[in-house]
Amino acid sequence: MRKLLAQSYLWLLLLILYSPIVIIAIFSFTEAKVMGNWSGLSFGLYSNLFNGQVSGALVRAIENTLSIGVLAALLSTILGSIAAVGIFNLKGWKKKSITFLNDIPMLNPDIITGISLFILFVAVGARQGYVTVLLAHVSFCTPYVVLSVMPKLRQMNPNTYEAALDLGATPSQALRKVIFPQIWPGVISGFILAFTLSIDDFAVTLFTKGNQGLETLSTYIYADARKGGLTPELRPLMTIIFLTVLLLLVIINIRNSRLTKRNK
């Protein structure tokens, strides 16, 4: 009885938590202009999305989101993984101060991160656009890469690197053949995480995109929603985004639980 009550509370909360997105998903299968009106089952909105029937601005926004996401993830993974090895070998106040700085982007609200970068770019006279958005994304993604690589370094036996050197490996060989394979899972998780964070971002992008017409999906949706409600073509898109994020997270989770199992 207690269990039934507990379970129904959980599922009631989940129902409320998921109902908005479920409603969008349901109404992505009908072409009615206003959500709530069901004008018959149709895959029209989906086929429009893939047949180039949508506005060019939306297509460009999707392209920007994906290319910024991949580039930001790539850059922050490289920067963050190298930094993690460095930070791991640091001691004392140096380690403390870099860890402190690394925490700031994760604790800072988006709007502060966005505005502070905006002010920086204004102050140095940088033209805001693709590059500034990319830099901004790298700045808030890298801390998460560092945090996902760090545990792998901690689990590593510190003597293996020295052993490789003693056996005649050059430092770069030891790095490639010994350290890298062991932190690889953390690097991959970091990359996926950085990509998810980047394509998910709205606030920071809004402040650093400048006024040259650069839009990502979030800022496009925002501009669209401010013009008055969600246009129908965004319904299938939001459904796809939701499912993509869902899939990525399930992958990360399965990987993580598998890795913890293997380590045990």
Binding site: L79, I82, A83, V85, G86, I87, I98, I115, V138, T142
Partner: peptide
């Protein structure tokens, strides 16, 4: 290997600390 943190340290100062100072 500890110097590997240097590029990121510079990056953090430029794109995390400096923006907050600017604000």
């Amino acid at each position: 290997r500890s110097t590997w943190a240097l590029p990121y340290m510079v990056f953090l100062i430029l794109f995390v600390a400096l923006p907050l100072v600017m604000i």
